[in-house]
Amino acid sequence: MSRLPHQSTASRLLMPGVVIVLIVLSLARLSWVDWLNSVAKIPTAILTPGSAVVSLASGWVLPAKRPVVTSERERALVEELEHWKTLYQREDRNNERLRKQIAELQRGRLINPESNITQLVAPVVGMSSDLSSGVLRVRAGESVGVVQGTVAVTDGVQIVGRVTSVSGPTSLIQPVTRKGGPKVAGRVMVDEPNNIGLKCLLEPIGSRFRGVVEAPESSLPNAGSLKPEPGHTVRLDDDRWPESAQRFVLGKVERVEADSSNPLRTIVTVVPTVEVERVSEVTLRIASDLGRGGTP
């Protein structure tokens, strides 16, 4: 740094002092710098409108890639099919849950009542400028009831991720496919009409999942022929997620490989139906059951 003759001692020491403070802050323990989250709300609130405008414009010019359909009618049919499949899966799961609930009630256990869902469409107003942070910022916050752990979906059924932080008018969503994120339990629907799925534990690897599929239970009819294949839908079946998000779509099986270490198991690569890290808007499913099944 140049030092001009007219600079005072204080101004000459200012830059080294600031640098020392920044070094200390950058290396401080996380618990010591928790207060910075509040400070960060100010620049975020100022910069969000500008990035929102640019983000919306870029989303209009370069929309997220979706499966190619030949006509509008086909697109409508595909969406309707997915919608009804999801409804069926959810009802089936509800039945299963109710059966368990009756059993629990008979044993005198208290069961939480049916959860209420409020859906809210929120635009994505920006992504992280840092590579190590892949969160999406959406324009919906505390004022509309968004809480930590709220599930975000797109296209009605495709899971995008969960809200990790709510600050004023915006929220941060960690994409479910984010590399290094927590593993997700799901079911590869090998026989969707009969609601037969194989359990799998998927690890996010960035825009995709990869994980091991368990062998079908021997009690199932034709257990030997139930194998995951490319194109099969993978649905969420994870108790760590809110009840309201169960059986939503994680993606489609893209590739199937044999697990060399265990011949009974298969490794699948699952790709979401939409590039979840590049969506322009999400639907937030604000549930009241976050406390019991949906620890974020």
Partner: peptide, 10 residues
């Protein structure tokens, strides 16, 4: 693991 977020300045 994505449970929460933290601002790190510096």
């Amino acid at each position: 693991g994505g449970v929460s977020t933290q601002v790190i300045v510096g």
